[in-house]
């Protein structure tokens, strides 16, 4: 029987942040030190800059941003990013409360419909018991809530060996695994 463990895109990186929150990343292809430019701040250039969707066009016009990221709030349409995906290195999906599940759809649309291969990072209330769903939807970086220990995150992500449905990660659904079992 195949072992459908979580696909790791590149080496997993774990970074212990100063504010006692953890950052899990299942890839190693791009920057970790992203700076978010709030909507009311002066736009700046830099190596790795994240902006809101409303300032995305403005950021696109600048040639002093090496790596560009965009933050998507619940309710914003990731399909708007389609023409610019080659220019985007990071999509941050915000979960202001874990109960708001809209950005699970955003992640799957990015991965499955738009074939986006860059980093997708969950930010906000990123709790242990939602991590598995997030990763399954194609999110490959997790800004963990400070309450989540590394051990709890690992446990949550490794608990289910099998899944019933195909989604935004590379795991085979059990109906597929059954064909070869």
């Amino acid at each position: 029987m195949a072992n459908p463990s979580i696909e790791r895109r590149g080496a997993e990186e774990k970074l212990h942040l100063a504010n006692n929150s953890y950052h899990l990343r299942f890839r190693s292809d791009a920057k970790l030190g992203w700076a978010y430019v709030p909507d009311d701040a002066q736009m700046t250039g830099g190596d790795a800059i994240t902006v809101s969707l409303s300032r995305f066009q403005e950021a696109l016009t600048r040639n002093d941003i090496t790596h560009l990221g965009v933050r998507i709030l619940p309710g914003e349409d990731v399909r708007l990013l389609q023409p610019y995906l080659a220019r985007i290195s990071l999509v941050e999906l915000a979960f202001p409360t874990f109960r708001d599940g809209r950005n699970y759809s955003s992640a799957r649309i990015l991965r499955e419909q738009l074939s986006y291969t860059g980093e997708i990072r969950a930010i906000g209330q990123v709790l242990a018991d939602q991590l598995f769903f997030m990763v399954r939807c194609g999110i490959d970086a997790l800004d963990l809530d400070p309450s989540v220990t590394h051990a709890a995150a690992d446990a949550a992500l490794s608990r289910f060996k099998y899944v019933y449905q195909a989604a935004g990660d590379a795991r085979r659904p059990v109906w597929d695994a059954r064909l070869s079992s």
Binding site: D100, G101, Y104, Q130, F133, F160, V163, Y164
Partner: peptide, 13 residues
């Protein structure tokens, strides 16, 4: 039943 069980996208509708 199988499709909907722990559906990652539709657990926080």
């Amino acid at each position: 039943r199988q499709y909907s069980t722990f559906h990652p996208e539709f657990s926080f509708l």
